[in-house]
C-alpha cells in the first residue's frame, strides 16, 4: 500500500510538473518537434486548448499528423510572435465572435508575417490554421488570399490559383450578360 501510495504521489508530481511547464511540444507529420508557448497555444487554437485542458498533450511531442513541418513551423512562429505582441482590443473581440464579427484588418506584424510566405506555404498554413481551430490565423491567411483576387478578372484569378475553367462558352456568356455591369472594364 505504501509503495502504491508512493507511485501515486510520483504520478501526481509528474502531472503537476507537466502542468507547470510553460511550453508544449508539437510533432509534425514528418516527425520534427517544435516548442510553443502553452499560453499562446491555448489562447490561439481551440484544438490545442482542448488538448491541454484534457491532458492529452504528450511531453515527447504531441502528434499532429496532418500538418507538415514547414506549416507547423509557421504556426509555432505565429504563436510565439503573438505571445510577444500585445493583443489589441480589436483582435480580442474578433476571436470572440469570429463568424459574425465585422472584418478586422490584420495588424502590421501579421501582414508582414503572411507577406513573406510563398503561395504554397500560405495555402498549407491556412489548412493548418483551419485544422487547429486558430481563428485569428485563419482570418489573417484568408484575408491575404482574398487580397490576391482583388481587382482581377475571372481569367486572371484562374491563372493565380491554377484553376480549371469548367464552364462552357455558352454558360459563361449567359452569366456575363446577366451581370454585364460587373465586367465593364474587362
Amino acid at each position: 500500500m505504501e509503495v502504491d501510495k508512493g507511485k501515486g504521489e510520483a504520478e501526481e508530481t509528474r502531472k503537476v510538473a507537466e502542468a507547470d511547464r510553460d511550453t508544449v511540444t508539437l510533432k509534425s507529420s514528418d516527425g520534427k518537434l517544435f516548442e510553443v508557448s502553452k499560453e499562446a497555444a491555448a489562447r490561439l487554437s481551440t484544438v490545442l486548448a482542448g488538448m491541454i485542458a484534457g491532458g492529452s498533450i504528450d511531453d515527447n511531442g504531441t502528434d499532429l499528423k496532418q500538418i507538415g513541418s514547414e506549416a507547423l513551423e509557421n504556426v509555432v512562429d505565429y504563436c510565439n510572435k503573438h505571445a510577444n505582441s500585445i493583443p489589441s482590443a480589436a483582435l480580442i473581440s474578433s476571436s470572440i465572435s469570429f463568424n459574425t464579427a465585422p472584418f478586422k484588418e490584420p495588424e502590421e506584424w501579421e501582414r508582414k508575417f503572411v507577406d513573406r510566405l510563398s503561395h504554397d506555404a500560405l495555402f498549407d498554413l491556412v489548412e493548418a490554421a483551419n485544422f487547429l481551430g486558430m481563428e485569428r490565423l485563419l482570418d489573417v491567411t484568408c484575408h491575404k488570399i482574398s487580397e490576391m483576387m482583388k481587382g482581377k478578372s475571372p481569367d486572371q484569378i484562374r491563372e493565380v490559383f491554377n484553376i480549371k475553367n469548367d464552364y462552357t462558352k455558352e454558360e459563361l456568356e449567359e452569366i456575363r450578360q446577366e451581370l454585364a455591369w460587373a465586367f465593364y472594364d474587362d
Binding site: 482570418d139 482574398s146 475571372p154 484562374r158 475553367n165 451581370l179 455591369w181 460587373a182 465586367f183
Partner: peptide, 23 residues
C-alpha cells in the same frame, strides 16, 4: 476554407459576380 476566403473579399458589387465566374 474557400468560404472563409470568399467571406473576406471586399464588399464591392463586382467582387462576388467576378469570383463566381471562375468555376
Amino acid at each position: 476554407i474557400l468560404r472563409e476566403i470568399f467571406l473576406r473579399l471586399p464588399p464591392f458589387p463586382s467582387s462576388l459576380p467576378r469570383a463566381s465566374l471562375v468555376c
